[in-house]
Every structure is written in structure tokens, then in C-alpha cells.
Design a protein around this nucleic acid. Structure first.
Lengths: 177, 177
DNA sequence: AGTCTATATTCAAAAAATTGCATACACTGA
DNA sequence: TCAGTGTATGCAATTTTTTGAATATAGACT
């Protein structure tokens, strides 16, 4: 169960509110760990009860108050413990590929159109990731050294998206034949 | 909810028992749709109740009897309906990347070792996929034409694994610095 | 004032996945 | 005969994910 640890990892980077975390899960962390806001808040409550994180209320100007959480010593220990133990390879559930597998049952143009839609999405994602990479590579060397591991997750995203687009091109060519 | 459709797609290809399906989910379909035997049997029961599949009991020599399911007309219609509607991009929950993101907290050798373990796994998967590809490409042209869409799912797997291994190489090099 | 949007959080229910456990048939080898 | 392995199926509980719904603060605009 790694949502807990994804949250702890992010809180270890900087204290955050539920909403801040949600933004991170829409970008950054979210490229490799999907989480819904209900999950995040629920998990924050649990982590707080377990004393792995602590809570402080923060008043904001022009915005509602927010609850800021930060990781505790206990939380950091729990996180380190998890980090030292091996995880299993992630499992894939890709409905698009199920559709491709059974695609002979439908009109090939429909399949092509859908592939092109997904291609568009993936192009956007790749663009976003490349922008993030450019920003990172323009940052000072100590920043680059500090964040070299998060950068690796970015590289994984980029290489994965590029592979996907290579495949999509191939697939569309085959479908046109 | 695509387990249902993954099962229907496979049953459309050929009638199968729960056990047969399980083997398919360990290979072939399983590279892009993960399913546990409990899920499969449960889903077969539901699909049968819904008349999307029909059941026949088959006696075997030297083995226990098996229940063979085949897709019904209604099932084929349901499947086609699903196939014509767009699906969302699949979501990623990759614990390894969460670990890489927070990897500065642990001994870098531990992280390297784990990456190398995963690398080994991915190499094996790629090998399996390439073997499957070779077999496919050695098959008669009409077979290749018939299964060109399932072949596309294989190609996706191969390109994805290759991208993963490229990344792993890059990551290990960075970790060694 | 009301509507819309953004920020911020919460509760609840349903669906799906995972884990644990179990049973039965059949064969093989000690 | 028993233990181990493979084939074959099933039930139940727990955990995780998804979906739906809602509330509150605050600002901007009509």
C-alpha cells in the first residue's frame, strides 16, 4: 500500500495541506502515483491518528484556512523502513490494449480515431514532462544534485511516453494498411 | 470496469475454462491486464448469470473436470458496444518510482540493488515477449493477418520494456556517480 | 444578490482488487 | 499410503480505489 508512502515522501520534501498534496498528485508525483482527493484526505487523517504526521492550522488571506501537515520523526522512520524493503513490479491494467486486442470486432476507423485521441493526450503529457525537464536542467547545479532522484522519475516518464508514441505511430500505420 | 471485457475478449477468441483464462492472464492478455483467479471465477459467475456467456461441463482424462465458458450473442453485442466507446488512459501506480523519488533517504546501494532486481525481472519479460514475437513472425501470413491487432499489444509490451530498461541503465549510471 | 470559479475539506457508498483460505480430482514418486 | 505437484474451482474478508455528494471560505462579475 504505497499511497501512504507517496504522501509521506511528499511531506518529507515539504509540509503541505491536503489541497497542496492534491496539486502534487496532479503533477509531479501524480505521473507515477494516481490518487483521488478523497483518498488523500482520508489517508492524512489516518496518518495523523498514527502520529506519523502532525497538523497545524493556517489562516490565509483571501482564501479559506488550510490544514498543514508535516511528517514526524516517527513518520520519517516508517518511511525509511518502507524504502529499504523491496517492492513488487507494478501491474498494468490498460483498457486501451484490451480494446486493441479485440479490435477486429469493430470498425477499424473507430479504433484509429481512438488511438489518435490517446496519441494527443500522450503528446501533451510528454510536452509537460519535457518542459519540467528543461526547467530542471536550467536550475543551479546544487539544485540538480539535490533533486537528481526525483529527476530520474521524470526521465522515466519521458522515456515511457516516447515509447508509447513510437508504438502509436506504428499501430496507426498498421491500421491504415 | 474492464476485467469483464478482457474476459469477454478472450472468450470471443476461443471458449475457455476459468483455469484456461487464468493461464491467459499469466501470459498474453496478462501483460496488459492483471487479474487474480478469484476475480476471474467471480466474474465468470456474474457474466453467466447475465447470459453474456454460457457454460458447459467437460470431462477430461487424467485431470479434473472443467467448466468451459463461451461467449453468447448477447455477450458479443455487449463487447462490441464497449469496444466502440472511448476508454480513459490507464493510471499508473508505480511503487518503485515512489521509492526512487524519496531515495535520498536511504542508502544508495540499497536503491541500486533494488533497481538491479527489477532490471532482471524486466529483462526476463522482454525476453518472453521477444520470443512470442519471433513465433508470431514465423507463422503463416494469414495467421499474421488474423492476429495483427493482438500483435500490436505485443509490440506495445516490447517497446515499453525496452524503454524501461533504457531508463534503468540511465538510473543505475546516475546512482553510481 | 446570485452565479461562477477557485480554494479547501469531509463523509459515505459502491466497486474493484488483493489476500487468505479451502476443496476436489488426478498423477507421480518414495 | 502419503506427500507433493499440477489441474480446477470456490468462498470470504480485507484493503484499496472509485464515485457521488456535500459543505465552507473567498473573490470576481453580472
Amino acid at each position: 500500500m504505497s499511497l501512504k508512502h507517496a504522501i509521506l515522501v511528499q511531506l518529507e520534501t515539504e509540509p503541505s495541506s491536503g489541497y497542496d498534496l492534491l496539486q502534487h498528485f496532479k503533477s509531479g508525483l501524480g505521473y507515477f502515483w494516481n490518487a483521488k482527493h478523497q483518498q488523500i484526505y482520508q489517508q492524512l487523517k489516518t496518518l495523523s491518528e498514527q502520529k506519523l504526521i502532525s497538523l497545524s492550522l493556517e489562516k490565509q488571506k483571501g482564501r479559506p484556512d488550510k490544514k498543514t501537515y508535516q511528517i514526524t520523526k516517527l513518520g520519517t522512520e516508517e518511511l525509511k523502513h518502507w524504502l529499504t524493503n523491496p517492492v513488487k513490479p507494478h501491474k498494468i491494467n490498460d483498457a486501451l490494449l484490451v480494446k486493441v486486442y479485440g479490435g477486429h470486432l469493430i470498425d477499424q476507423e473507430n479504433l484509429q480515431n481512438e488511438l489518435m485521441l490517446h496519441k494527443k493526450t500522450h503528446k501533451k503529457i510528454l510536452q509537460d514532462l519535457l518542459n519540467m525537464e528543461r526547467t530542471f536542467l536550467e536550475s543551479p547545479p546544487q539544485t540538480q544534485e539535490k533533486y537528481k532522484l526525483p529527476y530520474l522519475t521524470l526521465r522515466r516518464g519521458i522515456l515511457g511516453e516516447q515509447a508509447w508514441l513510437t508504438w502509436a505511430k506504428e499501430a496507426l500505420e498498421m491500421l491504415k494498411k
